[in-house]
Design a protein around this nucleic acid. Sequence first.
DNA 1: CCGTCTCTCAACCTTTTGGCTGATACGGCT
DNA 2: AGCCGTATCAGCCAAAAGGTTGAGAGACGG
Lengths: 208, 208
Amino acid sequence: MTAITVLLVDDHLVVRSGLRALLGTQPDISVVAEAASGEEALQLLEQGPVSVVMMDLAMGPGMDGIEAIRTIRERRKGQAILVFTTYDSDADIVRAVDAGAMGYLLKDAAPDEIFAAIRGAVQGRSVMSAPVASRLFQQLRNPDEILTPREAELLSLLTEGLSNRELGQRLFISEATVKTHLAHIYAKLGVDTRAAAIATAIRREGMR
Amino acid sequence: MTAITVLLVDDHLVVRSGLRALLGTQPDISVVAEAASGEEALQLLEQGPVSVVMMDLAMGPGMDGIEAIRTIRERRKGQAILVFTTYDSDADIVRAVDAGAMGYLLKDAAPDEIFAAIRGAVQGRSVMSAPVASRLFQQLRNPDEILTPREAELLSLLTEGLSNRELGQRLFISEATVKTHLAHIYAKLGVDTRAAAIATAIRREGMR
DNA sequence: CCGTCTCTCAACCTTTTGGCTGATACGGCT
DNA sequence: AGCCGTATCAGCCAAAAGGTTGAGAGACGG
């Protein structure tokens, strides 16, 4: 069995060293590099391949995790990437998987789960935390509830607290169209006021 | 110089081991116990004193960090407690300090900052991350913008997407009173719609 | 080619919200 | 005793938001 090499990408020093300590207990896994940002991760990957990249999604200013995943997958086809993050928002999960992540782990995952995900990732298997998987399935089961791109755009602006008039101006559409989109969004989210839409958007979709 | 003993309280295993590894580099600091919840922390403290408690605020189900801080301070007067968390929301900072925390560190703080905070805490000095301190000062400079307890309560419910009528029913007050409170909240937050109030509340106050 | 989806817009009407003014009551502080 | 902050309520009016129906233009796939 060849050793599995890991690159850690997380802007929090404590998380990196914690993960390093945790993975150090496994003889077949070794952390060979750490990066505090997406840019740094790309740089490090230039210098040599690793079996798996473990990446946080929220990483302060600059390139975010999703962007980093997409860029890495463009440059190194087939690179195994695991998302290791605190939150399990629907939007993040879908976008991460879409960008090319092999798995999605939460930071409170059990050690065994983390080890299994890493070993699975190098073999091309996709492993994710149970709560994450259930959210993904829920998305697939209810395609009616998936917002169209335009609706998602509008919802995103909605969470900034804009009025219908302002939304129209921002998106270069009439107020009437804004109201139409909103009506569709409300139906899909199962709410009937913009306040509730904002609340569920932020809580469900992680729009912060 | 006596050794400083530390109790780590965080529901994330990786954060605990990361912090343990980091603090292990300092000869005068040693992590003597770890807890994954507020309840567990209280139990451990029964068994013996520590110099400093380092506590996360968000810890899954059960007792939250603020509650844990308050309880610890009740049982062991003078116990030094440092908050070590990811987010720097105004509300959390104020409540943590109010509950009796000696300092407030962000998880992306530099190692030296963390060491300094721990050493300061055992000496009774209060140390906090720069962004945290600036937020605290801002609160003190603008007392006009501090919400009254009732207003905060209402704002919290507002972020759930309730209508004025529902707010009134929940709080056992008339819709007229709800509107009065809302008007005051809008003025203090510097907004003029409930949507914007929800947006700023969630972003500024960390009401998730 | 036709159906479906998406995005766009309009008119109409009801409900909700926001702005304003004013009022009562209670507690604490001076 | 008087003042201030907080919490409570009312009424009025204008603005914003929500519900409904209908409809046209592209795009895309069967």
